[in-house]
């Protein structure tokens, strides 16, 4: 669920919520509430990576710095960073992180 949008003659707008464009490819990090069952973007814009095809055929994943207050999994305020890396690198990092988590 991405908050906001237009329906039934009404438009709802929430600054800070990413605007996803039709025709653009994204990699999304999502989170599902165990109580409501609603799936949200993780950290709003923090969980949205734009995917763009490169001349060499590879795919680049990019995500700008998020200026909103962000918290880590334990609730501490974190300083965000813009991210740009090949999609393959991002996938392998996610995989490594998940594997490390599974070992624990």
């Amino acid at each position: 669920m991405v908050p906001g949008g237009t329906a039934s003659g009404r438009r709802q707008s929430f600054p800070g919520v990413p605007q996803l464009a039709v025709g653009t490819e994204y990699l999304l990090f999502v989170w599902t509430s165990s109580t409501t069952g609603i799936t949200h973007l993780l950290g709003m814009s923090q969980g949205v990576f734009n995917l763009s095809r490169q001349p060499d055929g590879s795919t680049l994943a990019t995500r700008p710095l998020v200026g909103e207050m962000m918290l880590d999994a334990t609730g501490r305020k974190v300083t965000d960073q813009a991210i740009q890396m090949p999609l393959t690198t991002l996938k392998s990092r996610v995989s490594r992180t998940l594997t490390a988590g599974a070992v624990k």
Binding site: R10, S13, P15, T35, H40, M44, Q46, D72, A73
Partner: peptide
């Protein structure tokens, strides 16, 4: 107050007519 994903403290905005 809602069950929001980690990293989100809150958000707000208006609902308008068209």
């Amino acid at each position: 107050f809602e069950d929001l994903p980690p990293g989100i403290y809150g958000y707000g905005g208006p609902t308008t007519t068209l």
